[in-house]
Design a protein around this nucleic acid. Structure first.
Length: 474
RNA sequence: GCUGGGGUGGCCGAAUCGCUCAGGCGACAGCCUGCAGAGCUGUUAUAUAUGGGUUCAAUUCCCAUCCCCAGCUCCA
C-alpha cells in the first residue's frame, strides 16, 4: 500500500491549474517549504487555516511513507515588523521574538507538527546578498537612483507563469519599494532596499550597501539554502501567489537557471460569518480570542481542516460547536471500544476495516479530499457502534480497531490524548461514596455527589461496565 | 464597474451526465438508565437559486436572470 515511488497521490498544482500525479524529485523523500508568519502580531485563524492545511498535507505524505523535510520561514524583518517595533519603541528583535514565541505556542495548541527548520530572515542576510549579487552580475537586477536594487521583470520571460499575470501591461520603469503594493499589476520589485531614516536602527552593512532585504528575496534564499535549488512543494495562502510567489520564482530561477519549485499549492481564504475577516466588521479572531471564549483548540483544528483547502471556507461559531461534537463522537467510540468484550462475527469486521482504509486513503490521495475521507471514517464509526451494540467485537478486535482509529488520527490530529492522569484522591473518594449511595438506592445522595463533581469539572457516566468519568474543559 | 469563485435538506459541507444526491451538526423517536445535561441506534428532512436549452438521461454541460463572496482599494 505504501508505495513511495510512483505514489497514488494527486495534487492540484497552481502552476498548471491541474491535478497532477505527485512524484518527488528524490524517491521516497519530499522537500517542502511553506510560507510562515510575518511576526508583527498574533496570527489569526485565517493564517492558521494555511498552517493546518500544510500540516494535513505533511501528515498525509508521511502516512504514505514519504520522508518529509519541511521548512517554514519566519519573516522577522519587513515593512510591517519595522513599523510595529517602532510603534512600541522596542528593538526589532525583541519585538519579533515576542510574536515568534506566541506563534510557536499557538501551533502547539493546534497540534501542528513542527517543521524541521524555522529559518529567520534576519539570520540569512548573507544568503540573500549572494543571490542579489548573482542577479546583478547577470544583468537582471539593477540599482535604482534611490540606491535600492530592483529586479527587472522584463528580463525574466516566464514572469507571470504562476499567477497568470500578463506582463504585457507593464509600464516601463514602474517599480515598487514597498512590500505591499497593488496586486494584479506587475512591476519591478525591490531586492534590496537602501537605508532610509524611517528604518531607524534596522539595517545591515553589506557589499550591496547599507540597507535591508526586500520581502520576496527572503523566501528564495531560505528555501534554497535548506531544500536545494529545486525542491518539491511550496505552499502558501492564495494571497501570496502574486506577487510574492511569482517573485520568488523570478529571483530563484533567474539566479540558478534551474526550476525552482515543482508543485505549488495554495489554500483559499477563510470567511467569518459569511464575510471577509476584518477588524472593521468585528469578525476578526486570533486563536487566542477563541480560546478565551472557551473554545476547544482541537475543535478549531477540526473545523478548519474539514473543508477542502482550495475552497473558501465560512467559519462560524455554530460550525465550531458542530466540530466539537464530531470529535466527541470519535473519542467516545474509542472509550467504548476499551470496554468491548464480545464474540466475533467473523469476516464482517475485516471487510469494514478494509473498506475504511481504502476509502479514506483514496479520498486523501485525491488532492486531500478531506470531506470524503471523513465521511468514510464516520461510516466506519457507525458500523462499529452497531457491532458494539450487539456485543459482536472481541477484546482483541477492539484493540485492533482502536489502533486503526489512532492511525487515522495521526493524520487528522483531532482526538485528544487519553487522560492518563489520576484523579485527585478527594475525587476518587467522592466517586466511591456515590457508588455506595447508589447501591443503597440513596438516589438523593448520589445525585448530590454527582452534581458536586460536575462543579469540579468531572462528568460521571454510569455504564454496565462501571463508572466512566471525563474531564470537561471550558 | 472589471476579474475570479459560488448558490445542494434547519446549519456546515461532499459527489456525480443515470441504482433512492456522502458525511457531520441539529431535531425527533426508540434503547439504555433509579434518574441523567451521558451514550448508542434509527428516522427525519418531500435539498441541488430561477427560467430556458442540449441529451435516452443533468444537480452535474450550454444560455439568460437573480443573489452571495473574494480580489482590484496597505491590517491573508
Amino acid at each position: 500500500m505504501d508505495t513511495t515511488k510512483g505514489s497514488n497521490i494527486r495534487i492540484f498544482n497552481t502552476l498548471t491549474r491541474q491535478k497532477e500525479n505527485f512524484s518527488p524529485l528524490e524517491e521516497g523523500k519530499v522537500r517542502m517549504y511553506t510560507c510562515g508568519p510575518t511576526v508583527y502580531d498574533y496570527a489569526h485563524i485565517g493564517n492558521f487555516r494555511a498552517f493546518l492545511f500544510e500540516d494535513l498535507l505533511k501528515r498525509w505524505l508521511k502516512h504514505r511513507g514519504f520522508k518529509v523535510t519541511h521548512v517554514m520561514n519566519l519573516t522577522d524583518v519587513d515593512d510591517k515588523t519595522i513599523r510595529g517595533s517602532q510603534k512600541q519603541r522596542k528593538p526589532l528583535k525583541e519585538y519579533t521574538d515576542f510574536y515568534i514565541k506566541a506563534f510557536f505556542e499557538d501551533i502547539k495548541t493546534l497540534n501542528v507538527e513542527p517543521a524541521d527548520v524555522y529559518p529567520r530572515a534576519t539570520e540569512h542576510i548573507p544568503e540573500m546578498v549572494s543571490i542579489i549579487k548573482t542577479l546583478l552580475e547577470k544583468g537582471i537586477a539593477y540599482r535604482g537612483e534611490d540606491n535600492s536594487i530592483y529586479y527587472d521583470i522584463s528580463k525574466f520571460l516566464a514572469y507571470g507563469k504562476l499567477s497568470h499575470i500578463k506582463t504585457q501591461k507593464l509600464k516601463a520603469g514602474a517599480r515598487v519599494k514597498q512590500d505591499e503594493y497593488a496586486k494584479e499589476e506587475a512591476r519591478d520589485f525591490a531586492l534590496w532596499k537602501a537605508y532610509t531614516p524611517e528604518d531607524g536602527d534596522v539595517f545591515w552593512e553589506t557589499e550591496l550597501g547599507k540597507g535591508r532585504p526586500g520581502w520576496h528575496i527572503e523566501c528564495s534564499a531560505m528555501s534554497m539554502k535548506y531544500l536545494g535549488e529545486t525542491f518539491d512543494i511550496h505552499c502558501g495562502g492564495i494571497d501570496n501567489m502574486f506577487p510574492h510567489h511569482e517573485n520568488e520564482i523570478a529571483q530563484s530561477e533567474a539566479a540558478t537557471g534551474k526550476p525552482f519549485v515543482r508543485y505549488w499549492m495554495h489554500n483559499e481564504h477563510l470567511l467569518v460569518e459569511g464575510k471577509k475577516m476584518s477588524k472593521r466588521f468585528g469578525n476578526f479572531y486570533t486563536l487566542r480570542d477563541l480560546l478565551n471564549k472557551g473554545y476547544d483548540p482541537l475543535a478549531i483544528r477540526y473545523l478548519l481542516l474539514s473543508t477542502h483547502y482550495r475552497q473558501q471556507f465560512n467559519f462560524t461559531f455554530e460550525g465550531l460547536n458542530a466540530a466539537k461534537s464530531a470529535i466527541e463522537r470519535l473519542k467516545n467510540l474509542q472509550r467504548r471500544l476499551q470496554d468491548a468484550n464480545g464474540k466475533t462475527i467473523g469476516e464482517k469486521l475485516t471487510q469494514l476495516i478494509y473498506k475504511v482504509q481504502a476509502g479514506f486513503s483514496e479520498a486523501m490521495d485525491d488532492d486531500l479530499n478531506i470531506s470524503v475521507a471523513l465521511a468514510e471514517l464516520f461510516d466506519f464509526v457507525r458500523e462499529i457502534n452497531n457491532l458494539l451494540d450487539i456485543n459482536a467485537i472481541t477484546k482483541e478486535e477492539a484493540v485492533k480497531v482502536n489502533q486503526l482509529i489512532s492511525d487515522f488520527d495521526k493524520v487528522l490530529g483531532v482526538i485528544p490524548k487519553a487522560e492518563q492522569e489520576k484523579l485527585p484522591q478527594e475525587v476518587e473518594a467522592l466517586i466511591k461514596q456515590r457508588e455506595e449511595a447508589r447501591k443503597a438506592k440513596d438516589w438523593k445522595t448520589a445525585d448530590e455527589i454527582r452534581q458536586k463533581l460536575r462543579f469540579m469539572g468531572i462528568t460521571l457516566e454510569d455504564t454496565p461496565q462501571g463508572i466512566r468519568w471525563k474531564k470537561e474543559k471550558g
